[in-house]
Design a protein around this nucleic acid. Structure first.
Lengths: 231, 231
DNA sequence: TATCAATATTGATATATATCATACTATATG
DNA sequence: CATATAGTATGATATATATCAATATTGATA
């Protein structure tokens, strides 16, 4: 737990979410006083299911996973958070305890804002509230449609989908280092580790991708897209 | 399309959502002026994917399904709305067109409120905004956790889950009339019609349920719960 | 460096689920 | 009334996926 803390000013924060542009000077100052910044290492767990919710977590830099622990230590990954995401935004206002856990897939830098302060601002700042609502809807669109699509796709389609997701949403590059293990990919798209491995190898044999350990290279994006769409 | 329209006053509406208790008299009057009430018959489609969003739909009485049409006329049911639900609340603020369609599973009575009016009220009424946010989070908890659980459960577990859902969430009775066809059950829990039929028959043979056409009787709830939980 | 544990890989096999075929309702429709 | 049409039902078979087993590889740690 090497939670290096450093304090920066919200008003000039370079990571600032566009949502906070709707705040007044006073509100920004209030956030400034009631937030803490932490830097965490890959693998560290920030929030655990069942623990009381105190903060709204904002991801400045890095990559994190939001997951749920089921019976028999199995995990299910709900979503992968990228910079500028408010993590778990879809559940913090309806629960007093976290329903998901949160851990770092890469070294990450977070800003944790007291939830009570956010609530206070919602009460007094309509523009902020409406923007937050829009933001929540956008997140729910993505998360939900991902989960809904899982149901119709076969394993090959899911793997293609996740490979493209990392390329397009996360790394914005056709060459990237997978931030997750084969097992975690399985937890994200509901399949067994062995099948993740198998289908990745298959895709490599078919020249769709290059693999070198965790390094992935998308080689035939049109074909991958087709596989992803047709399931 | 027998959209019988009748107008009632919001301030004394017996179907009123608790959310509207946070409104001022003026705001209630504004809603009153910008809403329309409609009564629709089983099978009627209210919103269609791709059509512009103008209203926030509130279900007063009846039962509706929110669904998505995929390639090849296949449907996927996202959720089933019960009275007092704001339908599609999770996507109306992030899109200008509906991303889901909405149709009646039973004769239903709806109140459709101009979305612009809702937005206006969010901007000026913090309590309403915060309550709406909490509501949205609750909906997303339910919808998302349902979809997440689908991924881990096998067919038997899914059927058990859905049978219990109708008994406990929708009809609050162990005997009820299924509002959906076997095909629609499949669309709701990602499985083939034949397997829905097969497993229902199996459950009947095992004395877990009684079936008579669409009429379902839960006969061994503890066992169904176990099947639902263990997947 | 040696050792251990976790991860990755591949193959063989079992199981779950989808698909195909057929028949048998109910319900609508001319 | 006859005849479509969708829904329900069941069996046989094909296919997709999970499970089991064995080995290789990597990464962490003493």
């Amino acid at each position: 737990m090497s939670n290096t803390k450093r304090e920066s000013r919200c008003d000039v924060c370079i990571y600032k979410s566009y949502l906070f542009n709707y705040l007044t000077k006073q509100e920004t100052a209030l956030v400034n006083l009631n937030k803490k910044e932490i830097v965490i290492e890959k693998g560290e767990i920030i929030c655990q299911e069942g623990k009381p919710i105190k903060y709204l977590v904002y991801l400045r830099e890095g990559l994190m996973k939001l997951y749920k622990t089921g019976a028999g230590r199995t995990q299910q990954i709900i979503s992968i958070a990228t910079p500028q995401d408010f993590i778990g935004l879809l559940s913090v206002f309806s629960n007093t305890e976290y329903v998901y856990s949160l851990s770092a897939l890469e070294d990450s830098s977070l800003c944790m804002i007291e939830l009570d302060v956010i609530k206070k601002i919602i009460l007094q700042n309509g523009k902020f509230a409406l923007s937050l609502i829009e933001k929540m809807n956008k997140i729910s669109d993505v998360v939900l449609s991902n989960k809904v699509e899982l149901g119709v796709k076969q394993l090959r389609g899911r793997i293609a989908h996740i490979l493209l997701m990392f390329a397009e949403q996360v790394y914005r590059s056709d060459i990237y280092e997978l931030p997750v293990s084969r097992k975690e990919i399985g937890e994200l798209i509901d399949m067994r580790t062995e099948n993740v491995v198998r289908i990745l190898s298959e895709f490599r044999k078919d020249q769709l991708i290059g693999i070198e350990g965790k390094k992935i290279e998308i080689r035939n994006k049109p074909m991958l897209k087709k596989i992803s769409e047709l399931g």
